[in-house]
Write a protein that binds this DNA or RNA. Structure first.
Length: 158
DNA sequence: GCCAACGTTGGC
DNA sequence: GCCAACGTTGGC
């Protein structure tokens, strides 16, 4: 069991969009970065926990918890010339790009803002908080996961 | 909208 | 294989 943080711009796909999906499940397609691809293809496993992060948002935040429900399978949007993530160099017999499927577990409401996360000493080493961090699929340690879940649970008192 | 940080491309 | 130019990401 491992833990991850997946980034998405809410203007293109938000945690609320995931909640609204049939079975609250979607294929995490469109990843076009090799390091992120390698995590998706080689390490992300069914049952893993996912922090759903809203980048380019106001404020940027962790907006919900999800879980992996299907391991890596080819990202078919790479083969569709009409898709914005089309990659003419990727071929069906040897796909370059992969996706996993995730299912919403619960929203974090209100979400955990980036500023707030920066203020948490135990999260100081988190990849998300590193200056210049751009990776859209990031590993999260068990200790970091525990801290974030605890912060998320504290949201429920009101 | 700005711009720092990072990834990719391509000439050499 | 180097590295400058370029494109993208994402906080602010």
């Amino acid at each position: 069991m491992a833990y991850w943080l997946f980034k998405s711009e809410p203007s293109s796909y938000s945690f609320a969009d995931l909640m609204a999906e049939p079975n609250q499940t979607t294929g995490w397609d469109g990843v076009r970065n090799y390091q992120a691809r390698n995590f998706l293809r080689d390490q992300v496993a069914v049952g893993d926990g996912v922090l759903f992060y809203h980048s380019n948002a106001d404020p940027p935040c962790i907006a919900g918890i999800a879980e992996v429900v299907a391991q890596a399978h080819p990202d078919l949007t790479a083969f569709d010339p009409n898709d914005s993530h089309y990659d003419s160099k990727s071929i069906r017999s040897d796909p370059t790009w992969f996706q996993v499927s995730i299912k919403a577990v619960r929203p974090i409401d209100p979400p955990l803002g980036l500023q707030e996360l920066h203020a948490v000493a135990e999260l100081a080493g988190m990849e998300l908080l590193r200056k210049g961090s751009r990776l859209s699929i990031q590993p999260v340690s068990a200790a970091q996961w525990k801290v974030v879940i605890k912060l998320a649970k504290a949201r429920k008192k009101h």
